[in-house]
């Protein structure tokens, strides 16, 4: 499976600059790149393709058949050229437009009947502009969605912002998406891309900074966005969990920007990591071992306009648990 790294970020947040720098690293020599807007920065790379936003939704269809047309076509084309031996690549980087919600592209990778046999999500990299992000997060839901979808956040233009602004922004990012590590734009390729899918899962499992078992934090009161985590003090029934999360995301996926967590399952010594963006859940990862800390299940949500207490109650009811004792 070829990993597909999604590079997203608000308009002018430095996506292309970062991409250009990453591509100069010899480690990225085998990367194919899809960009959907030709910016002013020239990209000198042997595999450049252009895509436009184009969501194809079958009119009578369901969520599994929403396909982002040109992304799918571009990836199919790359795969076809590789199969003929005309090109070779070991990863793909897709740069999205500044206003794009990353979810449809992830959905395409998962739902497309051919692509999903050749490509897998390699993680979402979100650039955040140190100077303007604070204001953008205040009134642009897209900015919050992009941050929520991130597996790693790259803080750009830190040299242009006051240091206390950067500190404040880092705190805000940690509250908005506690599951993504934050690096600065001058970090090495390895720091930016290394363990993009594994590192954040460990991060998701870590106890929160207050040492509480649960908390929620308002990210944006006007938009009603908040992060919320819960721990479950006993092994989870995988089948019931699957029914619950599937129904929850079917019904409320548009308001659930992100769900991520680590589960201690009945009859399993090793933990399972869960990773979802809106209606989409990636294939569950069977981790090799528990990260440091207690071996308890923990789920982190980034929500818009949903009462966390209802999610906790719903989880307990679906699992057949007494809420006040088992779910905190």
């Amino acid at each position: 499976m070829t990993p597909v790294i999604l590079l997203t970020g608000f308009l002018g947040s430095g996506k292309t600059t970062l991409l250009q720098r990453l591509l100069t690293d010899p480690a990225m020599a085998g990367a194919a790149v899809l960009i959907n807007e030709f910016g002013e920065v020239g990209l000198d790379h042997h595999l450049l393709d252009r895509i436009d936003d184009n969501v194809v939704l079958m009119k009578s269809g369901c969520i599994c058949c929403t396909v982002r047309g040109e992304v799918a076509d571009a990836l199919m084309n790359l795969q076809s050229l590789r199969a003929k031996g005309e090109i070779g690549f070991d990863r793909v980087v897709i740069e999205t437009t500044g206003l794009a919600d990353p979810y449809p592209v992830l959905q395409t990778l998962t739902a497309h009947p051919v692509l999903r046999s050749h490509f897998a999500s390699g993680g979402v990299l979100t650039t955040v502009d140190s100077v303007n992000a604070g204001a953008q997060m205040g009134h642009r839901a897209e900015a919050i969605r992009q941050i929520a979808a991130a597996d790693r956040i790259v803080l750009t233009k830190t040299d242009l912002a006051e240091s206390d602004v950067v500190v404040e922004l880092r705190q805000k990012l940690a509250q908005t998406n506690p599951t993504a590590a934050v690096v600065t734009g001058d970090a090495t390729t390895e720091e930016i891309l290394g363990g993009l899918r594994a590192g954040d899962i460990v991060q998701a499992a870590m106890p929160d900074e207050h040492g509480h078992h649960h908390h929620h934090h308002s990210v944006n009161e006007d938009l009603g966005v908040l992060t919320f985590s819960m721990t479950i003090d006993r092994p989870v029934d995988w089948t019931r969990f699957g029914v619950w999360l599937t129904l929850l995301l079917h019904r409320h996926g548009e308001k659930i920007f992100r769900v991520k967590g680590i589960l201690a399952l009945e009859g399993e010594a090793r933990p399972v990591a869960i990773h979802g963006v809106q209606h989409l859940v990636h294939a569950p990862v069977h981790m090799e071992h528990w990260p440091p800390g207690p071996h308890v299940s923990r789920l982190v949500f980034i929500l818009e306009g949903i009462d966390p207490a209802l999610i906790r109650r719903s989880f307990a009811a679906f699992m057949g648990l007494a809420e006040e004792r088992a779910v905190a």
Binding site: M58, G61, C64, C65, P113, R116, W238, G242, V281, P284
Partner: peptide
């Protein structure tokens, strides 16, 4: 997919 007629949609995460 019985709703859309697209082949190969049954790889549900669960």
């Amino acid at each position: 997919c019985s709703l859309c007629g697209i082949l190969g949609c049954d790889d549900h995460w669960t």
